[in-house]
Amino acid sequence: MIDRRNLLLSTAAVTTATWAGLGATTAQPIELLKIMVPAAPGGGWDQTARTIEQVLRATNAVAGVQITNVAGAGGTVGLPQFVNQWKGQGNALMVGGMVMVGAIIANKSAVKLDAVTPIALLTGEALALVVPASSPFKTAKDFADALKADPTKVPVAGGSAGGSDHILLGLIAKAAGVAPAKVSYVAFAGGGPATAALLGSQVAGGISGYGEFAEQIKAGKLRVLAISSDKRQDGIDAPTLKEQGIDVELFNWRGVFAPAGVTDDQRKAMISLMDKMAASPEWVDACNKRGWTRITRTGDAYKTYIAAEIVRLEAILKDLGIG
């Protein structure tokens, strides 16, 4: 069944691509948009791609969207494929984000993000620092003080080492004057098992995307000490780290890239497609439903943002002893 669906889509792709090729002299609207998701179906990047598909179709911005998943290693398996095999395709995008920047550094990937064309930064998810309901910590300052006193006494749960959760703990430690390499970080295979460890009070604290903990916080089983965004977020009743005197800001951002070797017209057409999409009420609605903060930055502004992120993440990963 699934195979037939893919088959139909790829047949459609061939036909449309031929049509697009015939009249490709001026920058005309994109008919079939191809999106590579460098991760398995179901995760954050995949959901981003499927939401883009849903919104573009609902607003009739494109006739069709074809999504390809290339799973593996924080996107560093998909990225080289996108660079080499999708070169010059003006109707193609790849989803990526902060996790990929970290994975490229940690895996010492040969192909880096400068090999692709930044199109648009779309969303960001604030991370949350939480503790079990029974914890003595009431504020992020309590947490930071305990960390300062003895980091080995404050085990913190989160996703895989070197990922966004670990990075945030490293940044908090650094801001509190503790060497990031000293923190007791307990890596779990994803937010689910990490939350289980928190609910069972196996660890002192936990870090993950706010959405991962939201329902447990609502039910009073976990207490949120702080979120990592620059300012307070709608619908989240929690102060930021900055408000509590910990000068740290981190977003798990996600955006899209075009392949290498696209023409300037193609790049501009793609940027305007994403600009229009990000401004549509359908997009706003979809982001609210999933708890994503909209951050729209396109073209050069996006490029500058990524460059700054790379410098920052390289430094903290080095402090954590990774990469």
Binding site: A71, V77, A106, H166, G321, I322
Partner: peptide
């Protein structure tokens, strides 16, 4: 593959497909 606790690759021999 990549070790969960340290983020370091083990026995992958530079093959990115083995990282997971």
């Amino acid at each position: 593959g990549v070790d969960l606790q340290t983020g370091q690759a083990r026995f992958t021999f530079g093959v990115p497909e083995l990282l997971d």
